[in-house]
């Protein structure tokens, strides 16, 4: 087909829009000047400052813990929900269930945060649990909305895999539970890995919900960044952003390489 010039130009502009701010942030993290966007010389002093900031480091450590735990909980719950939605064609309340599973994904953060907080406050006064708010409450809140995303990822993987493989296993004498662990789980493993990573990132990224359900002394990394950014420019945030971009880029690169390696080469027609 003939190709026009419109699409390449539009795509180039669009990608520049997406990436220019990120790239400039990386560049200016090495800027000596305190005025973030005025270049005055190469320096890595903001990285030093970042690693000597106990508040930032503590928040980062807390956020990583919360992200790992809530991604794991969400992975178990989300996978179970996905199995139920794909494999059980009909059960009572299926529509309600599927709505409930995916709603946290699109619910505005402020509503999720507020509603969770109200729940924790009510539970504390009625049951005495959870005592106060902090890491535990953030984990619960993050698990709930990460579960929705993971469910969607796993669902699509489950939906397009060949069921006859499972049937073959059962035909050869494996019980349904055994089949799930021997056959289904290995096949959907890539979706589980990407689901977990998604849950991890979502948790690490969340500001609004965490702000509602965290307690004193349990500030997550985004909360610390937000309070810094609100006050104005802070070059160490550039440094932090650069580190995150570097980690993500490396991760994606490794994932892509693994994927390319494992993908069988398809013969061209």
């Amino acid at each position: 087909m003939r190709r026009g010039w419109f699409l390449p130009i539009a795509a180039t502009l669009g990608f520049s829009f997406l990436y220019a701010p990120i790239i400039s942030m990386v560049v200016f993290s090495f800027n000596e000047n305190r005025l973030v966007t005025v270049w005055s010389g190469f320096s890595t002093k903001w990285y030093g400052e970042l690693f000597n900031d106990p508040q930032m480091l503590g928040a980062a450590w807390l956020s990583l813990q919360i992200a790992a735990i809530s991604a794991t909980i969400a992975l178990v719950l989300g996978t179970l929900a996905a199995v139920a939605l794909v494999r059980f064609r009909s059960f009572r309340g299926r529509t309600l269930f599927s709505g409930m599973v995916s709603a946290p994904m699109v619910m505005p953060d402020v509503i999720t945060g507020l509603s969770m907080l109200l729940l924790f406050v009510a539970m504390e006064s009625l049951l005495g649990w959870p005592a106060g708010r902090g890491m535990l409450t953030i984990v619960i809140a993050h698990s709930t909305f990460a579960m929705a995303y993971i469910c969607v990822v796993v669902q699509s993987r489950l939906a397009d895999f060949d069921r006859s493989v499972e049937e073959a296993a059962m035909d050869l004498g494996a019980s349904p539970l055994r089949t799930f662990f021997d056959i289904t789980l290995p096949i959907i493993a890539p979706a589980l890995v990407s689901g977990w990573l998604l849950g991890f990132t979502l948790s690490l990224d969340d500001l609004v919900i965490a702000s509602f359900v965290s307690g004193p002394g349990s500030s997550t990394l985004p909360m610390v960044i937000f309070s810094k950014v609100k006050l104005g420019v802070s070059p160490d945030v550039n440094a932090l952003a650069t580190i995150i971009v570097a980690i993500v880029a490396t991760g994606v690169l490794i994932a892509t390489l693994i994927q390319l390696r494992s993908k069988p080469k398809r013969a061209r027609p």
């Binding site: 942030m25 990132t201 990224d205 985004p222 960044i225 952003a241 995150i244 991760g251």
Partner: peptide, 8 residues
Amino acid sequence: PFFTSFLL
């Protein structure tokens, strides 16, 4: 970009 922090 989705995997780098929204806030950042």
